[in-house]
Nucleic acid binder design. Structure first.
Lengths: 366, 366
DNA sequence: GCGGGCGCTGCAATCGATTGCAGATTTTTC
DNA sequence: GAAAAATCTGCAATCGATTGCAGCGCCCGC
């Protein structure tokens, strides 16, 4: 006669969850056998009958693996970190969603954090994530002059950049990136404005620390030159935020003294803006100055973020492939984690022009 | 003579990072002493001189704590899980941001995941988070009939609901919640419409599985009754999405046969919508049907999500306290984690009406 | 009938930090 | 000056799972 088997939850107190040792005892095998039976990858190493029994007992006891314990031994946490500069910008959620979806199918969970465009905070977050032994990192936040990549290298964490790339030949370790062809994209906007008849076109650039802003600026200049036009003006917003857009546009509307035909008119009939978020501020500034979008000054955005089709007037912008961007980045990361030696790759997605109501032929000069 | 001290990184290979044992050896003390010296909470237990030396060596060797190893021993991961139904809905990022900010000051990192409004996915995510030993959970996703709370209870994970609450007396374990006063909020919308002169007011309700949708529906009915009015019509959207809003509004515009004055007119001059996201669809449907927002039918939203001030016409809506909501939830969670016996609390934040351009007096009957 | 081989299972070490307990040292107290 | 108390530090166990190695049994072939 044996004493009655311990109750499944063995006295509710501390070990709220059954461990592999509990299962082993109950099933009459060694813990290592339980481990092998319960891990799909090693299940083939034990007899099917044993595996069955172990599985059955594990279920009955409500056993759940401890990712922490396993991670300690294997040095893998099955966790991926994702850093975004600003979750409030609606282009990120769709990208995140795609990343998450791909990673979830492989059993990874994601640690998402906002850097708030703050390099120090970014470093801190990477440190914390390293502490948590993330298996990989997706960086949508890396700006120039950031330690992000060197930290990753130091901790040996594979990383993939998204919607950002490092300056060419910046001497930093090569890293894969998934970006848009921003140069081409802003070119589409310029072409569209020129086709409408605009000649005096300004550019409202983004913060020059990030590659998207630099590329769009460069692309703008290139394409203007291609059309044989001089840029009417270039202002730079301090950040990719609505408020920075408002401030920059307000400055642009006043115009450098004497540039405009009548002296204090803005020197342009259209402005190609570096990003949709900035456009919201542009609209704000124009409203405040009593200028009409499209009728007085045409505006183009960049990103086609959700909801800009419903702002008034609906924004003409450059659509990027949010979803593909997230998916690709996740896939590349998975590949590089599986095979660390893999050659780095840089994918550039092609954007397209979406014409809505914020652009129109220039108003006739009086 | 001693052999040369091992180089700081001791042969680059596997132990990319120094461990506490490395520091101990280098500093000539025991690992437990290192642990105490490096942990702010126990630093007082060792001599200041020793603590200094240990800290110095740890720095030199580039030691980083392993949250995984510590977590295994302490059963705390310093990680908090956050579940949202749909990150694409712009009300969530600000809430998340607030939560993250509060938790970050306490050294927690956040594991964010989308449930996509799918109960099965939600359960899976909670299981995975339990596996990762999250210390607490913030649920912005819990709908009725979900296992979320029982799972949390089973795993012993403290949880706080946000923007959702459980049906009263549903027999489920008590849990703290931070919500809006939705009943009051929708009442503000009704009051506003009535004050403008509307009498035939419809309600476009949200999916009745979630408490916000139920409360707003109830609040609408109550307030209408208060004014002595019959609800013109109530349609229910299948989800809090733009598309569901479009479909529901399209149905409402056709109206039940013969309800409208001319037989197929919508039976209302205004519609109080359960949520801003739905309003985007409402606008879409009205545009498709050739009806003007405000001029033909007034529309009110709920949430004051970012950017609805720029849609056309700018949406009159009910502003909720995104930021306070996130902060409060985080604080409550921290408190309950520190002291599990703490009484559960339910905080109800008060919303306010923001009048913009989507509401106007009813058009005069011809 | 015996050695080789193979398949399965158990043993024990390990991942890195934490912590109760005990021994060693110093300080306090009478 | 001795006993008691306080203060540090080291020892060793522990958290829960993984895994290299060894051993055991069984089957097969010669």
């Amino acid at each position: 006669m044996q004493p009655p088997a311990p109750s499944p939850l063995r006295g509710v107190p501390s070990p709220l969850r059954a461990t592999i040792a509990d299962v082993a005892r109950e099933a009459g095998v060694h813990a290592s056998t339980v481990s092998r039976a319960l891990n799909p990858a090693t299940r083939g190493m034990v007899t099917e009958a044993v595996a069955q029994r172990v599985t059955e007992v594990a279920d009955r006891l409500g056993w759940r693996p401890s990712a922490v314990a396993a991670g300690l031994r294997t040095r893998k946490s099955r966790t991926i970190g994702i850093l975004v500069p600003d979750l409030i910008n609606p282009i990120f959620p769709p990208i995140l969603h795609a990343v998450e979806t791909v990673l979830a199918t492989q059993g990874y969970v994601t640690l998402v954090a906002n850097t708030d465009n703050d390099a120090a905070r970014e470093s801190l977050l990477i440190e914390r994530m390293a502490t948590h032994l993330v298996d990989g990192l997706i960086l949508a936040s890396a700006a120039a002059g950031t330690d992000a990549l060197s930290l990753c290298a130091r901790f040996g964490i594979p990383a993939v950049l998204i919607n950002r790339r490092m300056p060419e030949g910046a001497g930093c370790a090569a890293v894969s990136a998934v970006t848009n062809d921003d140069i081409h994209g802003i070119g589409l906007a310029v072409d569209h404005l020129v086709a409408l008849g605009h000649r005096r076109i300004a550019h409202l650039a983004g913060p020059q620390g990030v590659s998207t802003a630099r590329d769009r600026r460069t692309g703008f200049l290139d394409r203007m030159r291609h059309h044989g036009l001089e840029p009417a003006e270039i202002t730079t917003a301090a950040a990719y935020t609505r408020e920075a857009g408002r401030a920059a546009m307000a400055a642009l509307l006043q115009g450098p003294a004497g540039t405009g035909p009548s002296g204090n008119e803005p020197g342009c009939t259209a402005v190609a803006v570096a990003n949709d978020m900035l456009c919201l501020g542009v609209y704000d500034a124009m409203e405040a100055a009593g200028r009409r979008v499209a009728a007085d000054i045409s505006v183009t955005g960049f990103n086609d973020m959700p909801f800009v089709d419903r702002i008034h007037p609906a924004l003409t912008t450059i659509r990027i492939q949010h979803d593909a961007m997230g998916r690709q980045a996740a896939c590349i990361l998975l590949a590089e984690m599986a095979e660390p030696g893999l050659a780095r790759q840089s994918i550039r997605l092609v954007p397209e022009l979406v014409v809505r109501a914020s652009t129109a032929p220039p108003a006739k000069a009086p």
